[in-house]
Amino acid sequence: MPGETTSPAGGKGERNDTLRPITIKQALEATQPFPEANYQIDSHDLGSVVFVGQLRNISRQSTNVTYKLDDGTGEIEAKQWVTPGTEDSMDTADDLAPAANGVEINGYAKVFGKLKSLYGDRKVVTTHSVKPITDINELHCHFLEAAAIHLFFTRGPPPSAGGGGGAKDAAMGGVGAGGYGGETGGGHLPAMSPVARRMYNLLKNKPQTNEGLAAQQIAAELGLPMADVARAGDELLTAGVIFSTVDEQTWALLEY
C-alpha cells in the first residue's frame, strides 16, 4: 500500500498515510504480527481508519471526550484528546461538547482516527474528527465501501471495464504496486472521460492529507468549473476508484 512499509527489523516502519473505511467488527478483530507493530486487517497494515456508528454514550473528561459507538457489528470507544485551559485552541473540552460538533446520543456519526490499544488488548480509536451523519445513505455507502475494500484484499481487484486484464489480475491474487493506478503498472483503470482522468491523476500525484482533496481545491488546481468537478467525482465514485471522506465533496483515491 502506498506510504506504508515494514522494517526488516520488525519495527513499525515508515509513516502510513492511507485511510481505510472499516466496520467496528473489523477493528475489534484486527491483529498485530508482533507487539508494537501496526494493527492489520486482511493482513494489511492500517494507517488511519474511518467508521460510522450510532452513539450510545458520550463521556466528557478534563483531558478527553470518549464516544461509545455501535454499528451493528460491534461496539467500540473513540477517544478524542483535548487540551484544557488553552483559550485560543479549538480543542478545548467546551469546544468538543456534543452540542458543539453536532453529535448526540442515539444519532449517527462518522469517526476518523487511528486504531490503538489501551490497558492491554482493549482496542479504541484515537480520533481527531467526529462528525454527525444526517443522510442515512451515507451510512449505507460506508458499509459498501468497507465491504468492497475487504473483498479487494481477500479476493483481488474487480475486472476492468474491458474485461480480461482485471480478471487476470484477480486470478493472480492481487495487483501490482500501482493498484488501480494504471499508468504506474499493475491494475487497470476503467474507461473514463478526459475530465475524470485529469481529476484522478491529480488525486494520485498531489500531496494531500488523509482526508483527500476538496472539490474547491480540485477545481482551482485544474482550472475547471465546480459543475465539471462534481460530474467527474460522480463518475469516479461510480467506477469505484475514489471514495468520499469528510463530506460528499471531499475525495480520496481508493489505491492500495
Score class of each variant (00 low, 15 high):
residue 2 P to R: 12
residue 8 P to H: 12
residue 11 G to A: 15
residue 13 G to C: 09
residue 13 G to A: 05
residue 14 E to L: 13
residue 18 T to V: 09
residue 19 L to Y: 05
residue 22 I to S: 01
residue 24 I to G: 12
residue 25 K to H: 14
residue 26 Q to L: 02
residue 32 Q to G: 06
residue 36 E to G: 06
residue 38 N to L: 05
residue 39 Y to P: 06
residue 39 Y to S: 06
residue 41 I to D: 02
residue 42 D to E: 10
residue 43 S to I: 08
residue 44 H to Y: 05
residue 45 D to M: 09
residue 46 L to F: 01
residue 46 L to W: 06
residue 47 G to V: 07
residue 49 V to N: 09
residue 49 V to S: 00
residue 49 V to A: 06
residue 55 L to I: 15
residue 57 N to R: 15
residue 59 S to F: 13
residue 61 Q to C: 00
residue 61 Q to A: 03
residue 61 Q to H: 01
residue 62 S to D: 10
residue 62 S to C: 06
residue 63 T to A: 15
residue 63 T to G: 13
residue 63 T to H: 11
residue 63 T to M: 10
residue 64 N to G: 05
residue 64 N to M: 06
residue 64 N to W: 00
residue 68 K to P: 07
residue 72 G to L: 00
residue 73 T to N: 08
residue 76 I to Y: 03
residue 77 E to H: 14
residue 77 E to G: 06
residue 78 A to N: 11
residue 80 Q to A: 11
residue 81 W to L: 02
residue 82 V to P: 03
residue 83 T to E: 07
residue 84 P to Q: 08
residue 85 G to N: 12
residue 85 G to M: 06
residue 86 T to A: 07
residue 86 T to Q: 04
residue 86 T to Y: 00
residue 88 D to R: 05
residue 91 D to H: 00
residue 93 A to T: 12
residue 95 D to S: 00
residue 95 D to C: 00
residue 96 L to C: 08
residue 97 A to L: 02
residue 97 A to M: 04
residue 99 A to C: 06
residue 100 A to T: 11
residue 101 N to D: 09
residue 102 G to N: 08
residue 103 V to E: 02
residue 109 A to I: 12
residue 112 F to P: 02
residue 116 K to C: 11
residue 118 L to S: 14
residue 124 V to W: 01
residue 128 H to S: 02
residue 131 K to F: 00
residue 133 I to N: 11
residue 133 I to W: 08
residue 137 N to G: 13
residue 138 E to A: 10
residue 138 E to W: 04
residue 139 L to H: 03
residue 140 H to G: 14
residue 144 L to F: 13
residue 148 A to T: 10
residue 149 I to Q: 04
residue 150 H to N: 12
residue 150 H to E: 13
residue 150 H to G: 11
residue 150 H to W: 06
residue 151 L to V: 15
residue 153 F to V: 03
residue 153 F to W: 07
residue 154 T to I: 01
residue 157 P to K: 00
residue 158 P to M: 10
residue 159 P to E: 05
residue 164 G to R: 14
residue 165 G to T: 06
residue 167 A to M: 13
residue 168 K to F: 10
residue 170 A to K: 15
residue 172 M to F: 13
residue 173 G to C: 07
residue 178 G to F: 02
residue 179 G to H: 01
residue 185 G to C: 07
residue 185 G to Y: 04
residue 186 G to E: 13
residue 189 L to K: 04
residue 190 P to W: 08
residue 192 M to Q: 13
residue 192 M to A: 10
residue 196 A to H: 03
residue 197 R to C: 09
residue 199 M to W: 05
residue 200 Y to W: 15
residue 200 Y to C: 07
residue 201 N to I: 09
residue 202 L to N: 02
residue 204 K to T: 13
residue 206 K to I: 11
residue 211 E to Q: 09
residue 214 A to T: 03
residue 216 Q to M: 08
residue 217 Q to E: 15
residue 219 A to I: 03
residue 222 L to I: 10
residue 224 L to F: 12
residue 228 D to Q: 15
residue 229 V to P: 04
residue 230 A to T: 14
residue 231 R to P: 01
residue 233 G to A: 14
residue 233 G to L: 10
residue 238 T to V: 14
residue 238 T to R: 12
residue 241 V to Q: 03
residue 241 V to F: 02
residue 241 V to L: 10
residue 243 F to Q: 04
residue 244 S to N: 07
residue 245 T to C: 01
residue 245 T to M: 04
residue 246 V to A: 08
residue 246 V to M: 12
residue 247 D to Y: 09
residue 247 D to I: 09
residue 247 D to M: 03
residue 248 E to C: 03
residue 250 T to M: 02
residue 252 A to D: 03
